[in-house]
Amino acid sequence: MVTGVPVITVDGPSGSGKGTLAQRIAETLGWHFLDSGAIYRVLGLMVERAGISGDNVDKITEMAKNMPLSFDQGMVLLAGEDVAGAIRTETIGNAASKVAAIPQVREALLAWQRNYAKAPGLVADGRDMGTVVFPQAAVKIFLTASAEERAQRRYKQLKGKGLGVNLARLTEEIRERDERDSKRAVAPLIAAESAYQLDSTAMSIDEVYEQAMFNISMALPDLQR
């Protein structure tokens, strides 16, 4: 991590729109973008493919330390294979949530994530970006939405891809994941004390973006848009 590089963090639960918001901010500013969730999803995919039990902490931690992972122009490359689509399923999302609850895994991936902070700046999307990974971030945003709204958004995405999905079950899975993420012992999903909190339940992405950029401009008045 380059000392003095400005960082903006966007944290929140799955389906809140944080990834879309963070990427849009990064594009506007011409900064680097970190999708930390993709890192945990790739690890979850590796664990699922290997058929490893979630109790095998040593093996999962070893996998985390040696992930053959890279990002290139929208592709998520695992040993050269683009797994960008494969890691976006609900199954892998749940697997990611489980491996993310392992303290040794989070420690192993900490330096990996911090190394993304490079000039001119970084916008980091995740669940503990502002509380653990980049506690000194210049601007911290915590984006949320009701479980019902997030389930509806995911439902529409999956239906649009021609996939069969049950809305009630999807809502329950989101609630379960929220519970697991917010109550884990290490790096729980919580808003940083200094975070600007936004509830996107009844807001469009444009409205969320404008509010976020207003807050960013107030915190970083010399920033060029």
Results as ranks from 00 to 15, higher is better:
Val165Ile: 14
Leu43Phe: 11
Ala147Phe: 07
Gly130Ala: 07
Glu62Trp: 13
Thr91Ala: 14
Ala79Ile: 12
Leu163Thr: 14
Pro6Thr: 07
Thr171Trp: 05
Ala202Arg: 13
Ile87Val: 14
Asp181Pro: 05
Val165Pro: 04
Glu176Asn: 15
Gln23Arg: 15
Arg225Trp: 15
Ala100Tyr: 05
Ala22Glu: 01
Ile60Trp: 09
Asp181Cys: 03
Gly4Tyr: 08
Arg153Met: 03
Asp181Lys: 03
Gly93His: 02
Leu21His: 04
Ala145Asp: 06
Val123Leu: 00
Leu77Val: 08
Gly80Lys: 10
Thr131Asp: 00
Leu167His: 11
Gln136Trp: 08
Ile8Ala: 03
Ser36Ala: 06
Met1Gly: 13
Phe33Ile: 09
Leu78Arg: 07
Ala111Gln: 10
Glu48Ala: 14
Tyr116Ala: 12
Arg127Val: 05
Asp72Arg: 14
Gly121Cys: 09
Gln152Leu: 14
Val123Thr: 02
Val105Thr: 07
Tyr155Ser: 04
Glu48Pro: 03
Met75Leu: 11
Arg153Cys: 05
Glu81Ser: 12
Glu62Leu: 15
Tyr40Phe: 08
Ala187Met: 03
Gly160Asp: 06
Arg24Lys: 13
Arg150His: 07
Arg127Ser: 01
Glu207Trp: 12
Gln23Ser: 12
Ser53Arg: 13
Thr171His: 13
Tyr40Val: 06
Ala38Gly: 02
Gly80Trp: 11
Asp125Glu: 10
Pro68Asp: 06
Val139Glu: 01
Ile39Cys: 01
Gly54Glu: 11
Ser182Ile: 02
Arg106Pro: 02
Leu21Cys: 04
Gln136Ala: 13
Tyr40Ala: 02
Gly162Pro: 12
Thr91Gln: 12
Ala124Phe: 00
Ser16Phe: 07
Thr89Met: 03
Gly30Thr: 09
Val47Tyr: 04
